[in-house]
Design a protein around this nucleic acid. Structure first.
Lengths: 217, 217
DNA sequence: GTCTATATAGCGATAGAC
DNA sequence: GTCTATCGCTATATAGAC
């Protein structure tokens, strides 16, 4: 029976993978509250309950940790819009997409915050590869929306401006949660998120001459 | 003729006031790109064309500079919504407010970015005084919108959610300008801002059962 | 008021014993 | 693989000459 050397999955949540995960989770929380430069490797190590040297053993540099966190974040962002086709109904796709984005804001607020700060600062650490993927995705979705418009399935709105509208209004609930909680006097509940999602879907779809399909979400 | 000592205005754009302004402007630019901890006093001094020690002479500490920048930012944010009353037409007020917010995003993007990062990080440096003022303003505007609703001047939407919607969708053009430019392939022009403002006004007001009044902006 | 020179502290990263 | 000890650097802030 020959020994398989580089077996890279299955039966191996070994210490290596477990520690990597602990570091990424700890780092996400601290990067979100303190920003990149405001975060120290020491803080990450304490939250991950590991010595600082071990953290740098796994990732080699603080920038390496941050890069891993960023790519982890992008992997979260699959949505129903990715695979939508010209055959689909825009009212259904947009309704579902808005609810998905709101659910992401509610479930992974730190991911949204880290990404928001990265963009506000001018995307200094976002790899060319990640930018390229984002651009490709964006262009293809703009093209799809233009097809829907040409088919008369929705009003003629600028697809770019429409996508920015959806992103901004949904991500706001993650990124600005501190302000929202402060102004409301209490944190948003799941029900609050649902009401806000319904309102946003109604308003945004109205801007496209559409009516949301709440029965599918 | 007696000497007046603490004369604090008029005929005095002296070196003192001029240097203070130069420091605040330089600091705003650098805080916006680098964040609070990512900014060094040395960088601020270079952009302001002053020796580092002089910068610290005027403000005493980096945190002092940041505080001054924050309060400068809040002073920019007067709007037509501040003095709106129940007699006004919500369609006019909201249309104008959305255009004002977009104009602020276009004209003072750095101010928006600094404030956004401050909130994302959990408002660590925002004074209790500033928070209090924001809350007072928010509550009174929520009350006003509720009055409009009770008078049948607009549909019954949650006023808090409506205000978050306006803020998020307009501030996005300042805060995420790097992503917007990257995805579009070119920066937003004044005309692009105007088109986006019209679209946002149409969509957001539609969500309230209103039609924008473009002739007044 | 202005600027040079420096005190003090904390950072990321590494070397080397275990 | 793990951890202690430490290097080299850069930051904020100040002391004191001009």
């Amino acid at each position: 029976m020959s020994r398989v050397q580089n077996e890279n999955s299955e039966t191996k949540p070994s210490i290596r993978e477990s520690n990597r995960t602990k570091i990424i989770e700890a780092a996400s929380k601290i990067f979100a509250s303190n920003g990149y430069t405001g975060t120290t490797v020491q803080q990450i190590a304490e939250h991950a309950e590991l010595p600082k040297a071990n953290v740098l053993y796994y990732f080699k540099s603080k920038e390496g940790i941050y890069g891993a966190v960023l790519s982890e974040i992008l992997s979260l962002w699959n949505s129903c819009l990715d695979d939508a086709t010209v055959e689909d109904e825009p009212s259904e796709i947009f309704t579902r997409y808005i609810f998905e984005k709101m659910e992401l804001s509610r479930t992974y607020p730190d991911a949204s915050k880290i990404f928001a700060m990265e963009i506000i600062k001018g995307m200094p650490y976002l790899s060319e590869d990640m930018k390229h993927n984002m651009s490709e995705w964006f262009e293809s979705r703009v093209a799809l929306i233009n097809e829907w418009i040409n088919l008369g399935k929705m009003q003629a709105v600028d697809p770019q401006v429409l996508l920015f509208h959806i992103w901004s209004s949904t991500q706001h609930y993650a990124d600005f949660s501190a302000q929202i909680t402060s102004l409301r006097g209490e944190a948003m509940t799941v029900e609050d998120y649902d009401k806000a999602s319904r309102y946003l879907a109604t308003s945004i779809l109205a801007g496209c001459g559409l009516t949301p399909k709440f029965d599918i979400v």
